[in-house]
Amino acid sequence: MDQLKQDRLADRIKGVLYGQAVGDALGMPTELWSVSQIRRQFPVGIRDFETGPRTNAIAMNYLRGQYTDDTSQALIILDSLRANQWQVNPTDLAQRFLTWAESVHAFEHNILGPSSKAALLAIQAGRDPQSATKTAVTNGCAMRIAPVGTLFTPDQLPELVSLVVAITRVTHATDVAFSGAAMIAGAVTAALADYDWSAVMDWASLAGDAAKRLGTPTWAASPQARLRLGLEIARATQDDVGEFTRQLRELVGTGTAVSESVPAALAVAYYTQDIRRCALLAANLGGDTDTIGAMAVAVCGAKQGYHHLPMGWGSLIDRQNPQQHLTTYVTALLAGRHQL
C-alpha cells in the first residue's frame, strides 16, 4: 500500500475511534430521556458537549466531553485483542470488563446495561452466565463493536462475523445480539472501504444476516427489517429533519433494544452522512442517545475520516478522557489488519 493510501486509511480508522467517542460524549447528557425532557433541560437542544445533568440518573456521573461505557468497553475489547494476538480470549475479555466495571463503580452507579450487568455479575460470582447471555436483546453488544470493523475488508465477511460473534458471546448470545453487532461492525468495514452510502447499508444487512443464524433464537424484531424501514423514512423525509426524527422514534424506535437502536443509528448515519450533523441529531433524538450516537458517528467517521471532525472536538475528547489515548489504537488496528 502506498503512503497516501496508508495515511487515508489511518485517518478513517481514527475517524471511527473519535466518531465513537464524540457520539457517545455528545449523547451522554440526554441518555434515556424523551424529547420533551431534553427540551426542558436544553431549550435549544444539544448544540455542543455538556456535563451530565444532575437530573439524569445515568449521565450525572459524567463531565463535559467524557465518554461513557460504550467507548470504554470498545477500547477494552481492543486491549484484549491486542494482548491475545487479535484472537478472542473470553476469560481475558470478561476479566477486563469486570476490572473496569469495578474501577468506575459501574454496578453501583447504574452505568452498565442490563444484559452486560447480568452476565458480568454471574461471572464475578463464579456462575455460568448463559442464563443471561441467551436472553440478551439489549444493545451493549453493538455499542462497543464499531472499531472491530476497522480490522477487515469487505471480502472478509466470514472472518468479521466470526470475530464479532466471539466477542459478543461473552455477554450476549442471541440472534439479534449477533446480528446487530455485526451490522454495526459491517457498516464500518464497508464505509472504511469507501462504499457509497446505500452499499454501506446493504453490507451491514448482509453481515447481520450471516451473524443472526449463529445466535439463540428470540422473539425480538429483526434489526435488518427495521433498518429497511429506517432507510425508507430517511429517503422520504430528506428535506424535513423533524419529520425524519419523529417517524424514526415512532416506527423504528430509539430505545435500548438491539432491534431499535442499531437500525436507528444506521438510519441516522445514512440520513446525515456527516460527522457533525450525525452527532448533533443523535444527541437530540431521544432514547438511548449516547449509544445511538456512538454507533452512528463511528460509521460516519469511517466514511469521512478524522479530518472531518469539527475543530476542537478531538482535543476535547483527549483532554477529558486521559485514561486512554485514542491515537495509539490507530497504529494497533493498522497492524491488526495484517494479522487477521
Rank of each mutant, 00 (worst) to 15 (best):
Gln3Phe: 15
Asp7Thr: 15
Gly15Val: 01
Leu17Gln: 00
Val22Arg: 03
Ala25Arg: 02
Ser34His: 09
Val35Pro: 08
Ser36Ile: 14
Gln37Ser: 13
Gly52Leu: 06
Leu63Met: 13
Arg64Tyr: 13
Gly65Ala: 09
Gln66Val: 10
Asn84Lys: 13
Gln87Ile: 04
Ile111Thr: 15
Pro114Gly: 12
Arg127His: 13
Asp128Leu: 11
Thr135Arg: 12
Asn139Glu: 10
Gly140Leu: 02
Ala146Tyr: 01
Asp155Thr: 08
Leu157Tyr: 11
Leu163Asp: 03
Ile167Arg: 03
Thr171Ser: 04
Gly180Trp: 00
Ala190Lys: 05
Tyr195Thr: 12
Ala199His: 09
Ala204Phe: 03
Leu206Met: 14
Asp209Glu: 14
Lys212Ile: 12
Arg213Phe: 08
Thr218Pro: 10
Ala225Phe: 10
Ala225His: 14
Phe244Ala: 07
Thr245Gln: 08
Arg249Trp: 07
Leu251Thr: 15
Thr254Asp: 05
Thr256Lys: 14
Ala257Arg: 14
Val258Gly: 02
Ala264Asp: 02
Tyr270Lys: 09
Gln273Thr: 08
Asp274Thr: 04
Cys278His: 12
Cys278Glu: 05
Gly286Ser: 05
Asp288Leu: 07
Ile292Met: 03
Gly293Phe: 00
Ala294Asn: 04
Ala294Met: 03
Met295His: 07
Ala302Cys: 04
His307Leu: 10
His307Arg: 13
Met311Val: 15
Gly312Lys: 09
Trp313Phe: 14
Gly314Trp: 03
Gly314His: 02
Leu316Thr: 07
Gln323Thr: 14
Gln324Trp: 13
Val330Thr: 04
Val330Cys: 09
Ala335Trp: 14
